[in-house]
Design a protein around this nucleic acid. Structure first.
Length: 463
DNA sequence: AAATTATACAACCGCACGTTC
DNA sequence: CGAACGTGCGGTTGTATAATT
């Protein structure tokens, strides 16, 4: 599969692989001072040899000097990338091992799309490699309607959330958090994650999510709704704010003016931010006591408040997120009313997003993409439940023990498909985030049945 | 066997950040 | 203090190959 890089590839140097002088990237792909045209496209083995030789002599770094000193017609960026991804020693080639895959899943749940950070935990692997792996995996699983994370990872995230909240409440002004967020915003102390490992086996699924209040989830999910559902756990605040403005241009004034100062975000707890909206965090003892704002589940799913119409007939056949397999984990699924009535969904679409929703774009001190996904999903479910309850008779509120109406399922799935972000890990998987915590019966497209139902001890199934 | 589609991978691009001048 | 530069990161694109129709 890998493209061979040999000298014959020099002939591949097509016109468009050489930058036109009119193309002038600030750092790469430009003509050099002496009118040298830098090459683009696949590297040849000759170029590789030159680069390797250069690094041997001069060491890594100062990549822009490579072209000057080695005669390589490549920009520094390209050289660095080639070296880092293909030429540097101790690079592992070939498919990821199961252990590596497990690590990637775990790390992604922990860090989000921080490929370089993840690569640091996987010796011999590059960020690009991991990114490619993850993206293809996402596509595959999204296409199949499968969860991205194994249930245990969801539990870990939830537990982590719980622990985080506890610590936040105990020490509401934790300077360490401030430092953590500013310095290394996505580095979650391993001790927390390790703790999950230690406790995950003792956790029961039913106890995990149902304790999460609707309001809390709601608030949480609005974070993800802005970050395309599954942005890295902690984005640079200015960047996130900027993006929020981009996503909600019409709300700019409200957003920026209503947002608490960054210090509040960074400081420690989101509770400060949640409180103004009357939302508790994280465990509302009575989720139904507070009527959550009625804004759309799938409008949020999409990472924006799109009100685009569903495409008629786009009904997905497989409904893994709504299955209730008869496994040990089945109680997890049945403990939560999964089905969302179409009516409820429609109601959501029509409801405008409250301004407060944007305000709630707080950053969990140690949030993770997974957590967002999980909470997002739970919120959707809870909201749907509430909506359905409001509409009582006409809605298909399904109790945990009820058999899911297949027509509803299809419709719901259609909605998910329609409004989910095809790119973001949560986007598509929002519908299946829950199923990420819900064991999937062996009817997946890309997983052999034998891998679908695994004992809890088998934390990560091969995907 | 040809056409189409899916997958995997390499490379590019734009942006952000830190350092230097 | 601000511009220029170097570097790193994450997102995206392009394409060869495999799989499917």
């Amino acid at each position: 599969m890998s493209r061979s890089t040999n000298d014959s590839e020099e002939s591949m140097l097509s016109k468009d692989q050489i930058d036109s002088p009119s193309i002038d990237d600030s750092s790469c792909g430009r003509t050099m001072g002496g009118g040298v045209v830098l090459k683009k496209g696949p590297w040849t083995s000759a170029e590789d040899a030159i680069l390797v030789d250069y690094v041997k002599k001069h060491g890594e770094g100062n990549w822009n000097a490579v072209q000057k000193h080695s005669g390589l017609f490549r920009c520094g960026k390209s050289c660095r990338l080639r070296w880092a991804n293909h030429l540097r020693p101790n690079l592992k080639k070939g498919a990821f091992s199961q252990e590596e895959e497990r690590m990637i899943i775990e790390l992604h749940a922990k860090m989000g799309n921080k490929w370089a950070r993840m690569a640091a935990h996987l010796p011999g692997r590059t960020d690009n490699e991991i990114k490619n792996y993850w993206n293809t995996r996402i596509k595959r699983r999204q296409r199949a309607g499968l969860p991205l994370y194994p249930p245990e990872v969801c539990l870990q995230a939830l537990n982590e959330s719980r622990q985080t909240q506890n610590s936040v409440e105990i020490n509401s002004v934790d300077k360490r958090h401030h430092d953590l967020l500013q310095g290394n915003s996505y580095e979650i102390p391993d001790v927390i994650f390790d703790n999950f490992k230690a406790t995950q086996g003792a956790l029961s699924y039913p106890s995990a999510l149902p304790n999460i209040s609707t309001s809390n989830i709601l608030t949480q999910n609005l974070v993800s709704s802005q970050n395309y559902s599954f942005m890295p756990p902690i984005m640079h605040h200015t960047k996130q704010l900027r993006e929020s403005e981009g996503l909600f241009p019409g709300l700019n004034g409200n957003v920026t003016s209503a947002l608490p100062p960054f210090d509040q975000f960074q400081g420690d707890n989101c509770e400060k931010i949640h409180r103004p909206f009357g939302l508790s965090f994280p465990y509302d003892p009575d989720p139904n006591a507070k009527d959550p704002p009625h804004f759309g589940s799938h409008a949020l799913i999409n990472g924006n408040f799109s009100a685009s119409k569903p495409i008629p007939g786009a009904v997905k056949l497989e409904l893994p997120s709504l299955q209730y397999p008869e496994t040990d984990l089945g109680s997890w699924g049945t403990s939560l009313p999964m089905p969302v009535s179409l009516e409820s969904v429609d109601t959501f679409i029509q409801s405008p997003p409250p301004t407060g929703s944007v305000q709630s774009d707080c950053l969990l001190p140690r949030n993770s993409g997974l957590l967002e996904a999980l909470l997002h999903e739970a919120q959707n479910i809870s909201s749907a439940k509430n909506q359905s309850a409001d509409k009582s008779s006409s809605s298909s509120v399904v109790t945990p023990n009820e058999v899911v109406d297949s027509s509803n399922l299809n419709l719901c799935e259609t909605e998910w498909d329609e409004y989910s972000d095809p790119i973001s890990p949560l986007g598509r998987s929002a519908a299946s985030v829950f199923s990420e915590c819900t064991p999937i019966s062996g009817s997946s497209f890309d997983e052999p049945p034998s891998n679908d139902i695994l004992p809890v001890s088998s934390v990560f199934c091969r995907i």
